Deep mutational scan, measured.
Amino acid sequence: DKPLMPYMRYSRKVWDQVKASNPDLKLWEIGKIIGGMWRDLTDEEKQEYLNEYEAEKIEYNESMKAY
């Protein structure tokens, strides 16, 4: 599988927590909350997800070359 983009990594990490805090919200409403949370992160906080993505992207590209 292709590596997940940084925002999607963050979304997967916080989804269950946001859903548990807001059990009556629809999926798109939860997505909207998470989008706002992502925008509110500092560049340093986002960098963690970007670093994970870049590392996985290198691994993915290497595995595709071998294939």
Rank of each mutant, 00 (worst) to 15 (best):
L25M: 09
E59C: 08
I34D: 00
P6Q: 03
L25N: 02
E59H: 08
G36H: 11
I34E: 01
W15G: 04
R9A: 15
N61P: 06
S21H: 08
M5F: 07
N51L: 10
Y60I: 10
I34Q: 02
K65F: 04
S11P: 02
D40W: 01
P3H: 15
K57F: 06
M5C: 10
L27R: 14
I58W: 06
S21D: 15
M37E: 02
P23N: 01
Q47Y: 05
L25S: 10
N22S: 04
V14G: 00
E45L: 03
Y60F: 09
E29P: 00
G31L: 07
S11W: 13
D43L: 09
L27E: 15
S63Q: 14
W28K: 11
E48L: 08
G31C: 12
E62N: 15
Q47F: 06
Y60G: 12
K26V: 01
E45T: 03
E62W: 04
Y49D: 03
K19M: 07
G36F: 05
Y10Q: 02
D43Q: 10
S63T: 10
K32E: 14
D24G: 13
E45A: 12
P3I: 11
G31E: 15
Y60H: 05
N22A: 05
E44F: 04
D16R: 04
I33R: 05
E56P: 06
L41N: 02
W38P: 04
Q47M: 09
Y49I: 03
D43I: 12
S21A: 14
M37Y: 00
V14D: 06
V18N: 00
D1G: 09
P3M: 06
D43H: 07
I33T: 06
K32S: 09
W28E: 14
L27C: 11
V18I: 08
P23S: 04
E62P: 06
G36T: 12
K46L: 01
E62I: 05
R12M: 10
L27D: 15
T42G: 12
V14N: 00
A20I: 05
Y10F: 14
T42E: 08
P23C: 01
L4F: 15
V18Q: 00
G35W: 14
L50D: 08
M37S: 01
S11F: 12
K32G: 06
I34W: 01
E56A: 06
Y67D: 14
K46F: 00
I34H: 03
E56K: 04
A55V: 10
V18D: 00
S21Q: 14
D43P: 14
K26W: 00
A55G: 11
I33E: 04
M8A: 15
V14L: 03
Q47S: 11
Q17A: 13
Y67H: 15
Y67T: 06
T42Y: 02
K26R: 07
K26A: 11
R12W: 03
K46D: 00
E59Y: 07
V14E: 03
E59S: 12
I30Y: 05
D1A: 05
K32N: 07
P3E: 12
L41F: 01
L27T: 15
M37W: 01
I30N: 00
M64R: 11
D24N: 14
D1E: 08
Q47T: 05
R9C: 00
M64T: 12
D16V: 05
Y49L: 04
I58C: 14
V14M: 07
E59L: 11
R39D: 14
E59Q: 14
K2W: 01
S21G: 08
R12Q: 15
A20V: 05
K57R: 12
L50A: 11
L27A: 15
M5P: 15
A20N: 10
I30M: 06
A66T: 12
S21N: 14
E59K: 13
K32Q: 13
I33V: 08
W38V: 01
L25G: 04
M8R: 08
L4P: 12
K46H: 04
Y7G: 03
K46C: 01
Y49K: 03
E48P: 15
K19F: 05
E44C: 05
R39P: 03
G36S: 11
R39F: 03
K32W: 03
Q47E: 08
L50W: 11
G36I: 09
S11G: 05
I33H: 05
L41I: 04
A20C: 05
R39W: 01
K13V: 04
R12V: 05
E54Y: 06
W38N: 03
E54I: 07
Y67F: 14
M37D: 02
E62M: 07
R39L: 06
R12G: 06
R9T: 09
D40Q: 12
N51Y: 06
W15L: 09
L25H: 04
D24M: 15
I30E: 01
I30H: 02
M5T: 15
K32P: 05
E45P: 02
V18R: 01
I58N: 15
A55H: 07
A20T: 11
D24T: 14
Q47W: 02
K13T: 14
N51H: 11
G36Y: 08
I30Q: 00
W15R: 06
W15M: 09
P3L: 04
K57V: 13
E56I: 01
I30L: 07
N51T: 10
Y67V: 08
E48N: 10
D40S: 10
K2E: 03
K19T: 09
R39C: 07
E44P: 07
K26E: 15
M64H: 12
M37L: 03
E48Q: 13
E56H: 03
N22Q: 05
D24L: 15
A66P: 10
N51Q: 12
P6N: 07
M8L: 11
D16Y: 08
Y10N: 01
E62V: 05
E29F: 00
N22T: 03
I30V: 08
K46G: 00
S63W: 07
K57T: 09
N22Y: 09
D24E: 12
Q47V: 06
Y67A: 15
R39V: 06
Q47D: 10
E62Q: 12
N51I: 12
N51K: 13
E62S: 06
K26M: 08
Y49P: 03
I34M: 02
I30A: 03
W38E: 05
E56N: 05
K19P: 00
W15K: 04
K65R: 11
P6G: 10
Y60T: 14
E62L: 11
V18P: 01
P23I: 02
I58G: 11
Y7C: 05
G35E: 15
E56F: 00
P6F: 00
G31M: 07
D24W: 13
V18T: 02
K19V: 14
E62G: 07
K32L: 06
Y60C: 13
Y67W: 11
E48H: 04
I30K: 02
T42V: 07
Y7S: 13
R39Q: 14
Y67C: 14
R12S: 08
P23R: 03
G35T: 11
D16P: 07
A66V: 10
L25F: 05
L4T: 06
L25E: 01
E59G: 11
A55T: 10
Y60R: 14
K32V: 06
E59A: 14
I33F: 03
T42F: 03
Y7F: 10
V14P: 00
S63I: 05
R12T: 07
K26G: 07
E54C: 05
Y49T: 03
G31W: 09
E54Q: 08
E29Y: 00
W38I: 01
I34C: 03
N61E: 15
R39N: 10
Q17L: 06
P3N: 09
L4R: 05
P3V: 08
N22R: 09
E59D: 09
R9F: 02
A20Y: 05
S21Y: 05
W15A: 09
E56T: 04
W15C: 04
S11R: 14
Y7H: 04
S11N: 05
N51F: 08
D16H: 08
P6Y: 00
K19D: 00
E56D: 09
D16F: 04
E54T: 05
A55K: 13
E44S: 11
D40H: 05
L27Q: 15
Q47G: 07
P23M: 02
I33K: 10
E56W: 01
D16G: 08
Y53K: 13
D43N: 15
M64A: 15
E44I: 07
I58L: 14
G35L: 13
K13N: 07
I58D: 11
G31A: 14
E29A: 02
D1H: 05
E45F: 00
S21T: 12
K13M: 12
I34N: 00
D43S: 10
Y7W: 04
D40V: 04
Q17C: 06
Y53L: 05
L27K: 15
N22D: 04
L25R: 06
S11Q: 15
K32I: 05
L41E: 01
W38S: 04
K65E: 13
D16C: 03
T42L: 04
E62C: 07
P6L: 00
A66E: 12
D1Q: 10
K13Q: 10
K57H: 06
N51G: 07
K2G: 02
S63A: 13
W38D: 05
L50K: 13
M64D: 15
S21R: 12
I33N: 01
E44Y: 09
R9E: 02
E62F: 03
I58F: 02
Q17R: 07
P23H: 01
